[in-house]
């Protein structure tokens, strides 16, 4: 079971969190024209890397904040966590 450091609450067990997918995907701006290709990439296309992956988790049984987690998908090592407004280098 992973041990995730919520930037608001500190280290908490995985069962308090809910997974939210790739954190690097950016939604096209609202009220702006978007090409079919860009839209499809946003809705459907995801990479499945082996190794470092920046992803979203929500601290659902805690502060309910969405957070960013940089995790190794093969070893589960967590390198860094951050608020969604912060960048992960």
């Amino acid at each position: 079971m992973l041990y995730i450091k919520c930037p608001y609450c500190g280290l908490r067990a995985q069962k308090e969190f809910s997974y939210g997918g790739d954190a690097t995907v950016k939604r096209p701006n609202i009220n702006e024209e978007v090409s079919n290709e860009d839209w499809d990439n946003f809705v459907y296309m995801r990479k499945s890397p082996r190794g470092k992956h920046i992803e979203l988790w929500q601290h659902i049984a805690g502060c309910r904040q969405w957070i960013k987690v940089q995790r190794d998908t093969a070893t589960h090592e967590i390198f860094q966590t951050a608020k969604v407004t912060e960048e992960i280098r």
Binding site: S18, G20, Q58, I60, Q65, W66, V84
Partner: peptide, 13 residues
Amino acid sequence: LSHLEYYLQIVWP
């Protein structure tokens, strides 16, 4: 609720 929080916290802060 999670869906709304997602948009408020991440997409349209």
